[in-house]
Amino acid sequence: MPRSLVAVLSLVLLAARVHAIDPVTKAADGTPIPHPASKVTRTVKDGEKTVQVPKGMVYVPAGEFTFGTGVGAKKVKLDGFCIGKYHVTNAEYKAFLDATGGRAPSYWTKGTYPDGKANHPVAFVSMTQAAAYAKWVSKETGWTVALPTSEQWEKAARGPKNTLYPWGGSMDVTYKDGVLTSKFNYNGVLAAEYLKTHPTLETAYSAKSAKYGGQKVTVEKIVAYDDAGKATAFGIGATGQVRGWVAHSTNTGFIGTDLFHTLSAAGGNTTPVGTYEAGKSGYGCYDMAGNLWAWCDTKITATNGAERGKEVNEIRGGSWYATGTSCKSVSIGEGRAPAGAYNTVGFRVVMIPKE
């Protein structure tokens, strides 16, 4: 083969390689999010050590921190580790699926995510699938990549000051004159949006066999009925608590409507990663509160939610569906079956850095 042709082919292959590790999308503030197989790193000092931290991750230094709160709190010592600055996005997950031929999440169509959601966190991914993603990144990069333990996740979320939320000790949410001010994406964000911009949008309670099933209602008239028929109107309190969100026994409230089920099937009310600058943790992680729960590689017996009493994998951080108090940086006893895929659960990865 002529040398000139060899040179051209080499350039083509090089270009293909460069393209393969180009950023796959951008965060809300325009920060490029690298391809998951990218090997680009930056140097970080940890005491006397120098470690290489992958682009797209933050470094959590070695040391002791307080794990949990109250009587159950304990001191835990961890080695230094890297953790995703953001949840794994739709675009990053698609790069994995394109390379491996895996199954796309249920809300995608024709093998790709919805328009405009490249930089939203990927949902409807089981822990088993998330672990496969981490294993693939490990193979492509040569790094030790995994899902975080509950201890790793909590240290990254609470930051060096060990706060209850990534930014401090309280939700720090206000609601006044129809405007919600929040540092994170939780159910109040969704409630405020629909009450402000779609108050007269018509929907219906979707559980057809239930007492109120099929009853038509506008957003501003949604209520949650208790078993005695007492109604709690859909609304938001001054400090951000949502009323009339759900009444499980009667399948009413916002969660009981066709509107919610359509939204849920489309991937939920996620926001682009990195949207909430004021909500990042002291170590620089975004969306550790809200947007999507994150899988943890730690087994617990759930003490909260529908999985109460079952052995499950812990999930952390809350979601767009969760109440604000569920989005704390400490455990609230929530977990899910690792083979299940959920509209409120995503993931981020950790890596043991090389010195």
Rank of each mutant, 00 (worst) to 15 (best):
M1K: 10
P2K: 08
K26A: 13
K26C: 10
G30S: 04
T31P: 09
I33L: 08
P34C: 01
V44T: 14
V44Q: 13
K45W: 04
K45E: 14
K49F: 10
V58R: 08
A73P: 07
F81R: 03
G84F: 05
A95K: 12
A95Q: 08
V125P: 03
Q129T: 08
A130N: 06
A134K: 06
K139N: 08
K139F: 12
P148S: 08
S150V: 07
Y165Q: 03
D172S: 13
V179H: 08
S182Y: 00
K196N: 05
K196C: 02
T203W: 05
A207G: 05
G213H: 10
G214R: 04
Q215C: 07
A224I: 09
G237W: 00
A238D: 11
G244R: 04
T250V: 06
F260N: 07
G268Y: 02
Y276A: 07
G282P: 01
D297H: 09
T298K: 06
K299Q: 10
A302W: 05
N304E: 12
R308L: 05
K310L: 07
E311T: 15
E311V: 15
W320C: 09
Y321M: 10
A322T: 01
V330G: 12
V330N: 14
I332W: 09
P338G: 05
A341D: 07
F347R: 04
V349R: 09
